[in-house]
Design a protein around this nucleic acid. Structure first.
Length: 310
DNA sequence: CGATGCCCCTGAGAGC
DNA sequence: TGCTCTCAGGGGCATC
C-alpha cells in the first residue's frame, strides 16, 4: 500500500494522537511480522512519552522522550486505526490505498476491505490487528497488516541514520537533494530500466510502483529506457514530475484527513486519480495517443503510454 | 558489483 | 456455489 505520500499522511494523522502521549501499554498480538520484534520491544516502549512522529522514506519514526526511536514499516498492507475510548470505536487514521485497478471511484475505494464505514469494535481486535498501542489519553492505536509484510524495530534517535534499516537508503525525493544533477550522477552508466532504477531505494528512497509509473508518464519517459541514457532535459522533467506527483498525492491525503476530522464518524480514506496506474486500455489521458499499456518489469506491473513516453 | 527472479503472506476478484 | 488462478502499493536474498 504505502509509498511515501501514504506514509507521510499516516505520520500526519498519527501526530495528534501520539505526540505528547504516553504509551501506557503495548500489546503484540502476533509476533511474526516480516521480521521478529526486537527483544525488549514492549518493555522499552511502555511508559515512554512520544515526543515526535516523523518519516524517513517509507518508514514511520516515533521518537520517545528517552531517545528511543520506534521504526515502523507498513509493508504492503499495513495500516493504523485510532480508536477513542468510550466511542464504539472510530478510526482516526486510516490509510486506504487505491484498489489496484485504478478506477479510483470513491465508492470503489471504500469497499476494499471490511473496515469501511463500520466501526472496529474497541475490544474485539481483528485477526490481523497485530500491535496495539494504548495511550495515557485512553486511545488505542491499532496496527493492522493482513499480509504481514510490515515490521517494527527499535533504535536510538541519536544514531538514526546508522540504523541498519535506514543506513542504505537514498535521498528523500521531496528534499533538496533531488536535482537533475543528482539524477545524472546517480543513474549515469546504469543499464537497468529506468523504472527499476527509480524503485531502487538506495538511490531515491520512498518511491514505489504507483508513483514511479505516474511520474514517468508525466515526464514522458519510457519505463523501459536504460536509466543511464537520460539527457539533461529528461532529468529536469523527471525531477519536476516526481516532486509534483508526490506533493499532489500528499495534498490529497491531507485533504481526506481533514474531511474526516470535521466529520461525524465518516471514514477518511485517500482518493487518488491516477493517469496511467491501473488504467490499462484507457486512452492516454493527456495526449490521447492511444491505449495505456501494461507490461511486467521486475515482476511488477508497469503502466505507461508507449507513444508519448520515450 | 549489477541485474534479475523468487519469496515472504493473505485476500480479492476473475474465470471456469 | 465453489474451486483455481492471478494479482496486489515492499523489499530482502540468492543467483548468475
Amino acid at each position: 500500500m504505502p509509498e511515501l505520500p501514504e506514509v507521510e499522511t499516516v505520520a500526519r494523522g498519527l501526530r495528534p494522537h501520539l505526540e505528547g502521549a504516553q504509551l501506557s501499554r503495548v500489546i503484540i498480538r502476533r509476533p511474526d511480522l516480516r521480521r521478529p520484534f526486537p527483544p525488549g520491544f514492549v518493555e522499552s516502549l511502555e511508559g515512554r512519552l512520544v515526543s515526535q512522529v516523523g518519516r524517513r522514506a517509507k518508514y514511520l519514526v516515533a521518537e520517545c522522550d528517552d531517545g528511543t526511536a520506534l521504526l515502523m514499516h507498513l509493508g504492503m498492507s499495513g495500516r493504523f486505526t485510532v480508536h477513542e475510548k468510550g466511542n464504539a470505536a472510530m478510526p482516526g487514521v486510516f490509510f486506504h490505498g487505491p484498489n489496484g485497478r485504478g478506477q479510483a471511484e470513491d465508492a470503489d475505494l471504500a469497499t476494499e476491505n471490511g473496515h469501511q464505514g463500520e466501526p472496529v469494535a474497541f475490544s474485539g481486535a481483528g485477526p490481523h490487528d497485530h500491535v496495539i498501542f494504548e495511550t495515557g489519553r485512553g486511545t488505542r492505536i491499532v496496527y493492522t497488516d493482513h499480509r504481514r509484510f510490515g515490521l517494527m524495530d527499535l533504535g536510538r534517535m541519536a544514531a538514526l541514520q546508522e540504523h541498519p534499516l535506514l543506513a542504505g537508503l537514498g535521498i528523500e525525493p521531496l528534499g533538496p537533494d533531488l536535482t537533475p544533477g543528482f539524477l545524472e550522477r546517480a543513474l549515469g552508466g546504469k543499464r537497468a530500466p529506468l523504472k527499476a532504477a527509480l524503485l531502487d531505494q538506495r538511490i531515491i528512497a520512498g518511491l514505489g510502483n504507483i508513483y514511479v509509473c505516474e511520474a514517468l508518464y508525466r515526464a514522458r519517459l519510457s519505463p523501459t529506457r536504460e536509466a543511464g541514457t537520460l539527457s539533461r532535459a529528461d532529468s529536469k522533467r523527471l525531477v519536476t514530475a516526481v516532486r509534483t506527483v508526490l506533493k499532489e498525492a500528499i495534498a490529497a491525503g491531507g485533504s481526506s484527513l481533514r474531511d474526516y476530522a470535521q466529520a461525524d464518524g465518516a471514514m477518511g480514506y485517500f482518493q487518488h486519480r491516477f493517469q496511467v496506474y491501473g488504467r490499462e486500455g484507457d486512452l492516454c489521458p493527456k495526449r490521447r495517443c492511444g491505449p495505456v499499456e501494461r507490461i511486467v518489469q521486475s515482476n511488477r506491473s508497469t503502466f505507461f503510454c508507449p507513444v508519448c513516453q520515450k
